[in-house]
Computed example of a mutant assay.
Amino acid sequence: MTSTATTTPTTTSTFGALIRTGLIATVAASAATMAVAAVGHAAGISLDVADAPIPVTGFGVLTAVFSLVGVLLAALLSRFARRPRRTFVRTTVVLTVLSLVPDVLADAGAGTKALLMLTHLVAAVIVIPAVARRLAA
């Protein structure tokens, strides 16, 4: 008598793994955006927008807030979307591009605007792929 073991690979992760990965990516992205802002400031780029300075920690806080919104979006898509990963990536890429608009319009110098946009892109490059990997294709 022979038996054959059948395994079914899972393409989805558990909700807990999605949240855990999202939280880790959020912390990493927050640290990275603060580092980018600090290096930019040390290199002489102003962190002033409309004559009000943005503290380096402000970059981390706002990155954390919006990254957590992205994790919440991923959690909802994992439950309700037919193709959660594809929908998440498309949505977050569009939102990332839209997040650059206020930077372009900001009352700030060109270097400051570029630094602001760079921090958005750094956060997106860290969070989007990490979270997307935890969603079903």
Results as ranks from 00 to 15, higher is better:
S13T: 13
S13A: 11
T14S: 12
T14L: 05
T14R: 04
F15R: 15
F15N: 13
G16C: 01
A17G: 02
A17H: 02
A17C: 01
L18A: 00
L18S: 03
I19V: 06
R20W: 04
R20D: 06
T21W: 14
G22D: 11
I24V: 13
I24A: 15
I24M: 11
A25D: 05
A25S: 03
T26S: 15
V27G: 07
V27I: 15
A28N: 02
A28H: 04
A29L: 07
S30R: 04
S30M: 10
S30Q: 14
A32W: 03
A35C: 04
A35P: 13
A35V: 15
V36W: 05
V36H: 11
V36Q: 00
A37Q: 04
A37W: 01
A38L: 12
A38H: 09
V39A: 14
V39D: 08
G40H: 05
G40T: 02
A42H: 08
A42L: 10
A42C: 07
A43S: 12
A43V: 00
G44T: 11
G44Q: 07
G44L: 04
I45T: 13
I45D: 01
S46F: 07
S46I: 05
S46Q: 10
L47F: 05
L47P: 09
V49P: 03
A50L: 08
A50H: 12
D51T: 13
D51G: 10
D51M: 09
A52W: 07
P53K: 12
I54P: 12
P55A: 09
P55S: 07
V56C: 11
